[in-house]
Structure formats: C-alpha cells, structure tokens
Design a protein around this nucleic acid. Structure first.
Lengths: 300, 300
DNA sequence: TGCCCCGATTAAGCGGAGCTAATCCATGTT
DNA sequence: AACATGGATTAGCTCCGCTTAATCGGGGCA
C-alpha cells in the first residue's frame, strides 16, 4: 500500500499549483507540504513537481496525481455503499472536459444540479476532448464523436445548433448583392481558434459540396472566447458561426441576422464517461443529459 | 483520503482469517494489527471483523476490504505505468472465481504462466461464478453464460467436454442389457453437489428431448471433488459426467468406458473480467485464453 | 544593479501516533 | 483439570511528522 498522506500532498500541490494553497487545502503549514513532497521525491528518486508559477507536475508527478484521484473516486463510491460509516472529508472534485460553446450555453445548468460537487473543467475543442478522456486526464467529456473512447460509455446529447450570423450593418457592407461564393470569399469572418472548422464546414454545405480547394478561405479575425465571438458579430467585425441559444435574442431583435436564413449547422455532441468512475458520475450524467436535452436538438 | 495503514490491516485480517497471519504478512506484531483494527472500528463506530476461526468480515468490513483491493489493483497499474519508480511491496493477489472442473483440467496451466502473481481462487459452479463477479467479490471468473456481467468484458473460452463414464464392472452390473431409460433410472450415478445438473442434462440429450417429469432421477452418490469423482467412477460406485481430459487415459486403457460411446456433453465456458481491473488482468487473460484453447473445444 | 517581496525550503524541537513486549483472558483440547 | 492456542490489553518507548522560525532564491521594479 502506497503512502497516501504523501501522495495527497503531491496531488494538492499539482492541482492547486502552489505549496501554499495545497497547505490550506490540507490544513497544515506550507512547510509540512514541502517536506512531504520532498520525502516522496527522495523515496521515489525522481522529481515530481516542477517548482514555478504555478507549480506543475512532471510526467511521473501527473501520473501519481491521476492515481490519487482515481483512489479518491473509489472512496466516494465506498461512501455511497456504506452510508454514514465514512465521514466525507471534503466535496469530490470532478475533472471534466467541455467545449467552450457547451459551457457557454447549457453545461453550467447541469453543474448547478450538483451543489455538493466541485468541478475542474478542462476547456478544449469538442474534437479534442476525447483525447483527454483517452489519456485518463478527465473522468468524462463532451465530445463530437459518438465512437466511445476505450473504457468509456457514450451517450448522445443532441446537436448544438450554430447559425451563421452577422450584424445588419456588416451584411450591407459585405454582402450588398447577396451571399455568393464571391462575396463569401472576401467578407471577413470570425474564427474561434486554429481548431475551429465550423465556418469552413458551413461554407461547404451552403455552397453545395465543393472540392476542398474550391472552398473559399475568407479573411478572418481570431476570437478565442465564446462571448467575445458574439460581441464581435454584434459589433460588425464579420460573420461567424454562433450557438443558437446565444444569438436567438439578437436575431429576434434584429441586432443580428442570418447570412442565409434557415441554414443552421448542427453539431452533434456526445457525453462520454470513464468506467473507472463507476457510479460516482451517475448523478452528473443524469444532470448533463437533462440539461443537454433542454437546449440541444434531439438526436436521431 | 482514508487511513490506508489501518485499512490494510483490516483487509489482511479478513483475507488471511487471523490476526497472527495478518501480522506476518504486514511484518508487524499481532498486537499492532489488533490495535489498528480496533482503532478503525472505533473511528467508524462499527464492528468490522467477526472474531472467530477463521476471522471473517462483517458486511461493512468486507466492503472496506474490497475497496482496499481495488486500490491495490490501481497501484499495480500505476507500477506498470511508471516502471522502476515504485517498488513492489509484494506480489499482487488476484481473486478469481473458477469452477472445480476447470481448475482440475486446464486453469492451473494458465496460472503457471504468471509466476509473479498470487491467486485467491473462489471455487463455485460455473453457473454461479458470475454472481461473485457481479458483487465485485472477484476480479474475473470462468462462467457458463456469455452474457457479460455489467462492467465486465466477456470472452468465449471454448467448451469443456464431459463424458458419461463408468467402470466396465459397473457397466456389466447395472447395464447388462444396454443403456436404456429403464436401466438409467436404476443405476447409481455420481453427482458433484446440489448445483450439479450435468447428469440430468446428459440424460435429457441421450434419451431424446423428454419433458422434465420424464427424465429419470437415478439414485446418486454426492462427491464434491473432481478427482474423487473420477476415482468414484474407477471404483465402480456408479456413472457420472467426467471432464474428458481427466478420463481420456482411463478410457483408452479400458479402465473406464463411455455409457454411450461418442455421446459427450459440451459445456461452453466464458472468461469474464471486471473492467475496474483495467490492464492489470491483461496478462492473465491472455494466459487463460491460451490455456483454455489448448484443452477446451473451440467455440463457434 | 541593487533592493524587496513572495513563496519555497531548511533547521530545531516538540508531541503524539503506533510500535514492541509482557501479561491477561476466553475457548477448546488432551 | 491443566494446558495450549489465539486474540485483547496495557505500559513504555521510539521515531515520525508536525509547527515555528529562520533562511534561501528568483522575479519585478526603481
């Protein structure tokens, strides 16, 4: 059996990013934390924490941290199986990968249904969140693909509906003669980040299936924030694919208009949860599926 | 984080069945073990060990023991992921449910391929081993049904071939006019235990599909030991369904004969392993499937 | 370049957790 | 009835791991 007091200190340092905060969390002095981590490093003969702002884990440190969290998860299941016997020593922290648009539209509602849980969210593109899951860095993820990550259960959530939107002003300036392949290749568009393929995807569907080389590559702003993305459209910076729930009001009020009315892009999302979590994530899963159903567009 | 030194003592007592053996295993005195267990019981406010010969766990004690073993399993995976970093403090013990006939014919060969593992075998009928798995009491099991237990992976192993055998002497005595429904209902047979349905199953197939009420219920000996079962047949006690690998030599030498030559009963077996074991059981699974394939009769 | 401040580390010393060893007690055996 | 076995109890000691307090070191700023 490993030395869990030592490992708990390591995990606290890596997760909080500092010895001081770890000490607070463990209700001891920073000195004690430092000694524990040092002792562990000496015993294993390997550096585990990269001292810095913030402190991070080395490869070995991170793997140990992961182990600690798996054990903590088992413990929370144990508490469920033996109610009353084992006092909870603090709320469980669930590490989940979510894409920014889900977080901005519906995910927080699911989180709110579990007031006794703490969340450690990892923000990444829906196409990459599966990778976090595969590596065991998160317990569950909102992913784009239905194909279950090995060792995970996959549930369809429904599709997040995106609308190609721009301000009326922007429309007049860049699309005076309507939305054509030509105007689309010149009008500035908004892109979330380098992983964001939504604009290109929509272009392909709206222009009919073109060969990759023929899809226009408009000049683009890079705006890596969901709400800034909406604000950018409102301000007339250009057009972009915005989640319907965030722009419905603006569309109704005429502050934004659709480039091609009634031509949304649906991105199906899936909830995948690691099986090592067992029943620990059951509540969250229920909440996530409910919250998703309220906002997302029903799966097939 | 729970107090693992205390929990380890509890688990050792329950698994070894005595404070003394637990103490040996943990390299401390029995007194220390007693104190640890007592402290744990006081802290949780609940009896965890039933003192006796052997000591056993209460419901709560067993559940805690299970948790300790799950953590130990996670640790062995950790060791695999960080080779060299973490010194092994003793070989991993794998708790597996096996039916007696598999153990007597092929399972030991699989065990022998993992010289660095310890095994804690639970002997039960192949129809009941799945139950142990469902309750989380074992990590893997040889089962009769292919239907995977929730949270487990199921692999077909092939079928164990049983032959209805008796000594030539027994045949002359009880089947002078051949094997008929009449003689079968009077000749003594051997039954392993109350769960053993093999003899009845074979009777049904050999007599044609009869209604349950029409299947003869011969007088029977109860012999709950695989090798005693064979010895019983050799000694002429009666006839019984014996695993082919155990009686092939006897059949070839004429010490035993088949009641109905060429009328074996194939019992398909499956290997099911809990997913909480992750990769820890991978080696064993490979060995089990190989060993099974050598002795069992290929699945579809 | 020098100073300052924050955060991690180190040193010293104390308290208590948890061990050993010796003894006690219940149970079942010869 | 004496004894053997195995767990519980208690006393005493050791050493582990904490706190406090002093020290170190690096980044930011004048």
């Amino acid at each position: 059996m490993l030395d869990y007091p030592l490992l708990a200190a390591l995990a606290a340092v890596i997760r909080t990013g500092s010895f001081e905060r770890a000490a607070q969390q463990l209700h001891v002095t920073p000195s004690a934390v430092s000694q524990r981590v040092k002792l562990l490093e000496e015993r294993l003969g390997s550096v585990l924490v990269v001292r810095g702002q913030p402190c991070t884990g080395t490869a070995a440190g991170q793997r140990l941290c992961q182990h600690v969290e798996q054990v903590a998860l088992l413990e929370s299941e144990l508490r469920g199986a033996l109610p009353g016997l084992i006092p909870a020593e603090g709320p469980t922290t669930l590490r989940i990968a979510v894409n920014a648009d889900s977080l901005a539209t519906w995910f927080v509602a699911a989180m709110a249904e579990l007031p006794d849980c703490l969340f450690d969210l990892v923000l990444d593109d829906q196409d990459h969140s599966a990778e976090w899951l595969r590596k065991g860095e998160v317990l569950a993820a909102v992913t784009a693909s239905a194909a279950p990550v090995p060792g995970c259960n996959s549930h369809p959530l429904g599709a997040l509906r995106y609308r190609a939107t721009a301000s009326p002003d922007c429309m007049r300036r860049h699309f005076p003669d309507g939305v054509t392949a030509d105007s689309l290749s010149r009008a500035p568009c908004l892109t979330f980040n380098r992983k964001d393929r939504l604009q290109a995807q929509w272009l392909r569907t709206v222009l009919g299936d073109l060969e990759p080389a023929q899809v226009p590559t408009p000049p683009t702003h890079w705006l890596p924030s969901t709400h800034a993305f909406v604000d950018g459209a409102l301000a007339g910076l250009g057009w972009g694919m915005n989640p319907d729930p965030l722009v419905a009001d603006h569309l109704a009020a005429g502050r934004l208009v659709e480039l091609v009315p009634g031509r949304p892009l649906d991105v199906p999302l899936h909830w995948q949860q690691s099986r090592i979590a067992g029943t620990a994530l059951a509540e969250l899963s229920g909440a996530v599926l409910r919250a998703g159903r309220r906002v997302l567009h029903g799966p097939a």
